[in-house]
Nucleic acid binder design. Sequence first.
DNA 1: ACATCATTGTTGTCGACGTCTACATTGGCG
DNA 2: CGCCAATGTAGACGTCGACAACAATGATGT
Lengths: 197, 197
Amino acid sequence: MSQSRPYHHGDLRAALLASAERTLRERGTAALSLRELARDIGVSHAAPGRHFKDKQALLDALALSGFERLNQALASANLPDTALEPRMAALARAYVTFSVDNPELLELMYSRKHDPDIGTELAASAELSLDSFVRLVADAQQRGEIVQGDPEGITLVAAAGIHGLAALATNGTLRPDAVLAGLDQHIHLILHGLKPR
Amino acid sequence: MSQSRPYHHGDLRAALLASAERTLRERGTAALSLRELARDIGVSHAAPGRHFKDKQALLDALALSGFERLNQALASANLPDTALEPRMAALARAYVTFSVDNPELLELMYSRKHDPDIGTELAASAELSLDSFVRLVADAQQRGEIVQGDPEGITLVAAAGIHGLAALATNGTLRPDAVLAGLDQHIHLILHGLKPR
DNA sequence: ACATCATTGTTGTCGACGTCTACATTGGCG
DNA sequence: CGCCAATGTAGACGTCGACAACAATGATGT
């Protein structure tokens, strides 16, 4: 009976990450337990320790993979030869869509837990997310489509606006579908301002 | 010896909240333990259970008190008879200042853990935070200082922009002092838009 | 081919935690 | 003054993360 599985799993690390992400999506960060993951996969309770020095290391890895996928989504949504407004709207849609599709993951990605400098790799990937926006603003400035002046500050207005929107859509303050429905108008307002012209 | 404290603490609930907030500020949400709180205060490990049905209930209470203080700060910063831009800047400064002063609390307040409908009281207080912005936009529309159209969407642009900024300043992505230093310029860009006029 | 050895998984243990139940003390209300 | 709800205590249970000692495996070099 007990069809003895091979002593070595083969790719336990990947299995742990996959199972962890499933649990994260279905029951939230708090419900994540290394022992439960081990049980689900069918290894001993200490096996995860071989691949992640502690629980935080697994959370860091999850966050990192989240940023990688987010960056990929943003890169795919980047349309270099498009006018400013639709280009920014596409970027924003990619960001918000990823967020509402992975709310718990987003919270983990931006959680304060990583800081203890281990997150250099993670921080780099997070910075990379802003890159799409930086390039967008740089291009637009060159074309005169956007106000001149400190590119960082300008990028930040767009990025913070979109991140804030995603955060509110993700934490229950706003209805995700409503946010997505109003996205184009939202971008329009960011670009044209709230004051009458 | 063992100077026997009175059997009843007097106001254990308040003491728990105070101690919890201190721990939250100093060592983060993860470091919060009911048993440790009880130890610090000098009561038995089960005493907190009399005031908070479980750990989540204490976190909810902390979040609620956070929203109450945030709302108070926003109300104080509301200057009804001021022009749009400085008025919005003051509101934003209050929001961001509260956030960088209470980063862990802010994360807790907007965490996804509350949702299970218990948070009606909490949700109400969260909505109240937006009220200052809603009124600001309504006033400004009346005075023609702000673009006409769906007030909700317009309010959202301002609120999401500021919340996003606070979130980024809070989670380590941005330096808090840099955010505060650039706040007025940031608000200016939100109001005037990124496109050249 | 085969001995070696780092890698990966297991078992057992520890202390801490959240929660529950049964019990003790207290203070307020009739 | 006696009763009772509110508040605090003591003990127990199951789970968890982490650690250490041990076992199985498979790659490497000769």
